[in-house]
Design a protein around this nucleic acid. Sequence first.
DNA 1: TCCGAAGTTCCAAAGTCTTGGAACAACCGG
DNA 2: CCGGTTGTTCCAAGACTTTGGAACTTCGGA
Lengths: 125, 125
Amino acid sequence: MAVPPSTGAPPVDAPRAAPVVVPARETIRHPPKEALDLSQILRTVGDPLRLSIVRMLADGREMLCGPLGEALGLPKSTGSYHLRLLREAGVTRTRQEGTLRYVSLRRDDLEDRFPGLVDVLTGAQ
Amino acid sequence: MAVPPSTGAPPVDAPRAAPVVVPARETIRHPPKEALDLSQILRTVGDPLRLSIVRMLADGREMLCGPLGEALGLPKSTGSYHLRLLREAGVTRTRQEGTLRYVSLRRDDLEDRFPGLVDVLTGAQ
DNA sequence: TCCGAAGTTCCAAAGTCTTGGAACAACCGG
DNA sequence: CCGGTTGTTCCAAGACTTTGGAACTTCGGA
């Protein structure tokens, strides 16, 4: 609580304030393949907005967050929210490059864990 | 508002009180096959309780509402609620016989509209 | 070094879903 | 025709989800 009067030198334990290296943006959390949960995935893609996103990614392309949200007329924060849910459910994968985030369908792992699911979602038979 | 004094004969316009034939229990509403909506279905089976119900019905048997709810430890009203959601989404079919309701998976229509979906839900490959 | 662009996080309001007790309806058997 | 059984509907409380503006972080370029 007590702030020492200015001595002209930096306070001796100020460096202790940040002892942990926070990896910040470089770490984007994805659930491991074995942790994917069918209920969670179904609940997540059960939202029409999010199902649209899955379909935009169906061809395997990577897309940026901006265009994905804009295509659905969403404000940035709302787009970010839905993309986070998709990533946390394991439906999409996100890769950072500079300030850009490339989003793609996590097709390989989904197919491995729940064969046929992606085809059902994207309407491919 | 004025009730006529008893005349020994039934009041002349009493039959008007029930002009519409209410089919009551005999009519259980199911969405037509063409109206099934993938988002709604996914949202519905995205609940772990409801996914369990789908799996209990996976072998094609009919089950009664009671046993379905009891197997999951649900009070009657809660079981009834989840079974209604499944029926309204087109996932199950319900048929009445006396006071009993037989519930089964609507596999034919689901397979027709969304091929592969039932297998994904039930874990069959 | 400052600016703008890309995205995220924070947060509160609004909306939707779930739960379970109580009351109810319909049918069956005795 | 009464009592039990099966299941539904009603309803209010609580939980969870969605929305979008504002503030913020990070990076790249001029």
